[in-house]
Computed example of a mutant assay.
Amino acid sequence: MPQTVKGVIARSAKAPVEVVDIVIPDPGPGEAVVAIQACGVCHTDLHYREGGINDDFPFLLGHEAAGVVEAVGEGVTHVQPGDFVVLNWRAVCGECRACRKGKPWYCFATHNATQKMTLTDGTELSPALGIGAFADKTLVAAGQCTKVDPDADPAAAGLLGCGIMAGFGAMVNTGGVTRGDSAAVIGCGGVGDAAIAGAQLAGASTIIAIDIDDRKLDQAKRFGATHTVNSAQQDPVAAVQELTGGNGADVVVDAVGRPETYRQAFEMRDLAGTVVLVGVPNPTATVELPLAEVFGRGGALKSSWYGDCLPERDFPMLVDLYRQGRFDLDGFVSERIGLGDVEAAFDKMNAGDVLRSVVVW
């Protein structure tokens, strides 16, 4: 039987979010219903509310989530009711050209639930990133459920579903940082701090945090930054070069995604160094680079999709590191809030007052 639960929707662009009744259908073939235990408030949810993703309103917001599988549909074997899972928004298909090449983290045909969740009047909802987890329960493709250690705190583990995995993976999976490397991160929100934590875990010797907010720079030290640079007060390129013996950093992660920050990332990398873009740019943004420098510096200019992660590989590994005290997921949880507090959490996010507000049930 379909269930009626509470959920947070964005009904129209820039309008305040609402807590309303939504209808969750029984899972069909390849689908699962998950009872949500915690869900982080991510910038992407705000982009949906603002109409910055598309105009498929109303949106059921929320996607950085952990919970317990309640029911599964026909053909689902890798998860079962009672499993504690982190939800992911790139359920790989296993059949596209990327998957056939053995690179499923680039899957070009990731899938979501086939059925639609609705309002009580039958209006179909568009779930954020195919998840829609600001709700008591949600319907997802079973492949979006990744089993992890059930002893993990859901508020911390759920953050792996988006921002933390994106930042960590940008540094480790895409950037390939390793022991003894120097690393620089531009933008020290949740994604940037996760990149810093990844650099520390991988053994980087010099880890430089760059931001215009001293509060964020202080937080970055908690996650492993060895040096901080306020780019509103000094030239970040010159500062990084000075901190790396005049050479530049081996890996630079741009977690902002603006033309000026990308140009800075390009200029502050070492010869044969790597630049990784993980901050989401404005669709109209362009960047101009000197082609001779692109050639002369060598190395690589990369973008990172979801931290180039494979959820079934990376989520359990990171939760294990968290449980061992080696990866500080708890440090990203700034506050625990209720379902009715999402709009206020957006305001705190915009003011830079939190890394992550997390809705808990």
Rank of each mutant, 00 (worst) to 15 (best):
T110D: 03
Y106H: 14
N247S: 15
T77C: 05
V251M: 10
I337N: 14
Q37Y: 00
G273V: 04
D330R: 02
G169I: 10
T206V: 09
I207Q: 06
A66S: 11
L355P: 02
A292G: 10
A238P: 09
T77A: 15
L125K: 11
I186C: 01
A225Y: 02
G62K: 00
A195L: 03
R356C: 03
G62H: 00
L46Y: 02
A225E: 02
E242K: 15
C39F: 01
F332C: 03
V333P: 00
V172N: 10
G246L: 14
A199R: 09
V86T: 08
V177E: 02
M165C: 07
L159H: 04
K221T: 11
V69S: 07
I9W: 07
V5S: 11
R179I: 07
V237L: 09
T123I: 06
G82F: 06
G175F: 13
D211K: 14
L271H: 05
A109V: 10
L201M: 14
E31P: 10
T118E: 04
A170Q: 06
A345T: 00
A166R: 08
Q234K: 15
T228I: 14
A300G: 01
V34S: 04
A66F: 03
T4Y: 07
A239Y: 08
V287C: 10
I9Q: 05
S334Q: 14
A13P: 11
D56V: 03
F327Y: 14
Y306R: 09
V33L: 07
